[in-house]
Design a protein around this nucleic acid. Structure first.
Lengths: 223, 223
DNA sequence: CCAGGGTTCAAACGTATGTTTCAAACAGAC
DNA sequence: GTCTGTTTGAAACATACGTTTGAACCCTGG
């Protein structure tokens, strides 16, 4: 076994277990026994469980943001100063995600599920780490969305982006289960690419909906 | 102190702590000390931590589904056989949620956050419990959505409902954090009612978007 | 007044967690 | 081949958890 084969084995096992069970519900002993390494190896190589969590994110988020940055570069170059459209921006994102080199067939759904966890289970340290490391790329994505939806107020746009992220992270994070249900109920096979292809128009339509904003509790009349 | 004042104090404390920290991250000792009751009281009155979690859900979900069922009754009655529209259905849902009698000013956001957690952190026992108790109302909601979107294929509808649930659960499960960010960045106060009011048009538009279906990886051309 | 059932309390139990320890095994350089 | 720094290994550490215990407590019905 190579020198730090151990590090990768730990990261692989941790990634998969975190994705299926969450952070607190995954113990170091589960990770090390799945990885077939000694318990102490985690603290030796990473220092702490929290640092391991951050390392898991860094391993896939760093190449992803690099891919994404260059996709955005291409997009902006091809638009020659004009703001890229919403669909183009969303496609740049999904293509970058889908085209990431995957460690295995579960790669993309693990990736998505971890993003979802980062959002919903974010324990302080993780949120700080992600903010610290990746806020620049995230900000660029937000700026592109802003350019693509100039008709929206800042507040509307903020919330709709949250809705978008929610729909995406959530769907992708349970995409395996959802695919299975569809397979058994309707007999339909679905690839992650197809889910993405269905998601993009949904998101684009939602993001560009009429901002029917509140005369607060004003439900549509029945007639 | 009345006889089972203790039970309510435990439920109140548990509800609030679960909502802000999740289930595994909330210990019984936190709950009992916030409630100013003895540690053993939880196991005495509820039997176990899992049973307490279920009791927390039952306390707000049972009246909620009753309200919702009668809102659906009203809706269907006022439509006299015609299927209610999508907006009407979604509004019936959000109005039922918002109009629930609240124990305090944080009531509605706790409610939403718990629903989000139920979806994203669902530990087996909770999923089974919710399925057991509330699947009928959920099924009725799905049937209404089906009637409101006859133009969608079963597969499209299936995925779009997942997207919808995702956007909702996800946003609601982190709504406090999102509200804080908005407050500090843009200086805007936001109520849960406003979030819901923004969410409904987004979901309705997404659900009714043109079903731009996959000539698979067909990203929009740049020009 | 006092017996008895429901309730509270402090303390302990057993188990699981993240982390640390220190000796053994290993690698590569001289 | 031996030495040096790195990595692994089995075991223990301290702590926190959910749960159980059994004695105290209260309050009500007789």
């Amino acid at each position: 076994m190579a020198q730090s084969d151990t590090v990768d084995r730990i990261l692989d096992a941790a990634e998969e277990l975190f994705a299926e069970r969450g952070f607190s519900e995954t113990s170091l002993r589960m990770i090390t026994s799945k990885a077939s390494v000694n318990l102490a190896a985690v603290n030796y190589h990473f220092g702490s469980k929290n640092a391991l969590i951050q390392a898991v994110f860094a391993r896939f988020l760093t190449p992803f943001t690099e891919t994404l940055e260059s996709a955005f570069d291409d997009l902006e170059a091809s638009c020659e100063g004009a703001p890229p459209s919403l669909e183009q921006t969303l496609w740049a994102l999904t293509e970058s995600a889908v085209s990431m080199p995957q460690r295995n067939e579960k790669g993309i759904s693990i990736f998505m599920r971890l993003l979802g966890l980062a959002y919903t289970q974010s324990q302080g340290h993780l949120r700080e780490f992600l903010e610290e490391e990746y806020s620049q790329t995230f900000g660029r994505f937000m700026a592109l969305l802003k350019g693509a939806t100039p008709q929206l107020s800042a507040v509307d746009r903020y919330w709709r982006i949250q809705f978008m992220l929610g729909a995406t992270a959530f769907t992708m994070s349970s995409s395996d289960a959802l695919r299975d249900i569809l397979q058994t109920k309707l007999g339909v096979e679905t690839s992650v690419q197809e889910i993405a292809a269905r998601l993009v128009p949904f998101l684009a339509a939602g993001l560009q909906a009429e901002a029917a904003i509140p005369t607060l509790i004003s439900k549509p009349s029945v007639a």
